[in-house]
């Protein structure tokens, strides 16, 4: 199996120094640690939103950053999907547009919208298609953001504290949805959280962070949930 993510990099931001190395094979890997440990910075570096000072990043076997040879594949070329803490949906486009614009694997507006629609159904947002992000609740926004992060057939999904801006009941509901959708899609994911329960319930493995370093790594044993083989969204029965 190809390694989904292989990271060995360092980056200095002011006095803070991030220096981490880890690999992700499959499933959901949770970067867990206190605020300011460098978890979100790690995701930004993997996504290509920032550049490390040194090191390499490979996604699905493809080298996307190599500081020694000054290789920096732009964010758009990394085949990632990303879910941000505040959703960061395009405020002037409808929910359907937000997801359809992220679909890379299909040509033609109709095909892209069909795939977007199927992902929105999978996250339970099929009733929101024509709504604008400004009229959505926090939970609805994160559902759409999750669909957008997955709709582009990414090799890796990055989720940056996707639940931290939500209230408890919605958080619980979304937590289950995120795990279920990620497992059923079979797309490897790296999720950042500072919540121990969330790390425990969402992750297949937990990579502990502290002050810019990986301080531990633990696999979480789970009963088999379902076949994690990758399925096209159209084939997915609900």
């Amino acid at each position: 199996m190809t390694t989904a993510l292989d990271v060995a990099m360092a980056r200095k931001v002011g006095e803070f120094e991030l220096d981490v190395a880890f690999t992700v094979e499959s499933g959901i890997s949770v970067l867990f640690g206190p605020s300011g440990a460098g978890k979100s910075l790690t995701l930004a570096l993997i996504a290509g939103l920032l550049r490390p000072d040194s090191g390499t990043i490979a996604i699905s076997g493809h080298l996307v950053t190599d500081c020694a040879s000054r290789l920096y594949v732009p964010t758009q070329g990394r085949r990632i999907g990303m879910v941000f803490q505040d959703g960061l949906l395009l405020p002037h486009r409808t929910v359907l547009d937000n997801v359809a614009l992220a679909v890379r694997q299909a040509k033609g507006r109709r095909a892209r919208r069909a795939i977007a629609r199927s992902w929105l159904e999978r996250v339970g947002a099929e009733a929101l298609l024509e709504r604008r992000p400004g009229s959505l609740s926090g939970g609805q926004r994160q559902r759409v953001a999750l669909a957008r992060g997955l709709a582009g057939d990414p090799a890796l999904v990055l989720l940056d504290e996707p639940l931290s801006a939500l209230d408890s009941p919605v958080r619980r509901e979304l937590r289950d949805l995120i795990r279920q959708v990620l497992v059923s899609s079979g797309i490897p994911a790296v999720l950042v959280t500072h919540d121990a329960d969330e790390a425990e319930e969402l992750g297949d493995e937990v990579i502990a962070y502290d002050v810019g370093r990986v301080t531990g790594r633990r696999t979480i044993e789970r009963p088999v949930e379902r076949d994690a083989s990758r399925a096209a969204p159209e084939d997915e029965s609900r």
Partner: peptide, 14 residues
């Protein structure tokens, strides 16, 4: 700029 960054993660060219 964060919304523009989010758009880049969607694979949209600059």
């Amino acid at each position: 700029p964060l919304v523009e960054q989010a758009a880049r993660t969607m694979g949209l060219p600059n």
